[in-house]
Simulated scan of single mutants.
Amino acid sequence: MHQLAAQANYNLKDEIKAYWSARAETFDEQPGHEIFSDAERAAWHALIRRHLGTGDGRKALDLASGTGVVSHLLDDLGFSVTGLDWAEPMLERAKAKAKARGRSIRFLMGDAESTMEPDESYDVITNRHLVWTLVNPAAAFREWHRVLKPGGRLLIVDGDFVNPGVIARLAGRLATLLGRFGISDKRPAHGPGSALADTHRSILSRVYFSEGARADAVAALLRDAGFSQVRVDTNMRAIHRAQRKNFSLLKGLERATQHRYAICAVK
């Protein structure tokens, strides 16, 4: 009976948390997660400045902060940063990285859909590759609206990882085929055919954006949550160009042709 009760209490959000906890060990080894060049760092800085400006000590909440990659970018620009993540292994690495780099970033454990942070306590909120995993994005967006100060800005960086374009589909299939013959670059532990890849597919099939987190759908939910001046920015070329140096040719092509975007919105 106890085992049945435990299984009933282990829901989709628990699976998502466990998945990212498992990914923590190799997260910073993967291009597209950690930053491996000054050019990519500069491209990210430019994107953040374009939508949020410089920090000047303003308070930033980086949701699903992982190992702290975006938190460090915000810190670079002068924001006073709090990173929030619910995967303890991610937080351990984020704290160790900040300590090693001498950064005074605060990292907390918490749920991005229910932050438990005070009303109107942050000037900006950021997240990268979080929205596609949300179980209830409408509730999450209302929560983020609550936590922002009036005039505060939200910056989402995400994409549709379900519906790649023709070029991306062909590149992905060819990369997988070559990988089976040991021709392509080393395949990551979460790559096609791995247990983590199976878990990823299972999770993706059950989240709200199971058919793909298209920018227009995300923007509509933000407006429903009370945000205004919702702007979609698909100009990610500088970031993708810098990342390409650390990808195989096919992986770089696949990434550059995916529907990836930034969305900025104002409270």
Rank of each mutant, 00 (worst) to 15 (best):
I48S: 06
S248D: 01
R50S: 13
R214F: 10
G57V: 05
G66Y: 07
E254R: 13
A217P: 01
A5H: 02
S210K: 15
R201N: 13
E113L: 06
I16C: 04
H259D: 15
A46W: 04
H72L: 15
A18C: 00
G55W: 06
D56Y: 10
E15W: 03
A197Y: 14
D119M: 02
E34I: 00
F141S: 01
D119G: 04
F209N: 02
K95E: 14
L63G: 10
W44F: 13
R49V: 15
G165A: 05
D119F: 07
V70I: 15
A18N: 08
G182P: 00
D28W: 07
L91D: 04
V124W: 06
A238C: 01
R173Q: 14
Y208N: 06
A64Y: 06
N9Q: 15
A171K: 01
R49I: 14
K95Q: 11
M90P: 08
M109I: 08
R180V: 07
G252E: 07
D85K: 01
G172F: 06
Q3S: 14
R146F: 09
G83P: 05
H33V: 14
A217F: 07
V81L: 05
H45P: 12
I35E: 08
R187Y: 01
K97H: 03
A171G: 04
Y19D: 00
R103G: 02
G159A: 15
E120L: 07
G78H: 10
S184K: 01
V166K: 12
A24K: 10
V162K: 05
G68A: 07
R169P: 03
A195F: 04
E211K: 15
A189L: 05
I35K: 09
V157K: 10
F181H: 14
F79H: 02
A238S: 13
A39S: 14
R106M: 09
R41G: 11
K99T: 13
R241F: 04
N11T: 14
I105Q: 05
L73Q: 15
R173C: 09
T82K: 03
D38E: 15
P188H: 00
V131C: 09
H190D: 15
S194Q: 10
A140H: 11
A139H: 07
E15M: 09
L155S: 05
R206V: 08
Q7P: 00
G172W: 02
R142M: 14
L63Y: 09
P150L: 01
L108M: 10
F181Q: 06
S184R: 01
T199M: 13
E120Y: 01
N246I: 00
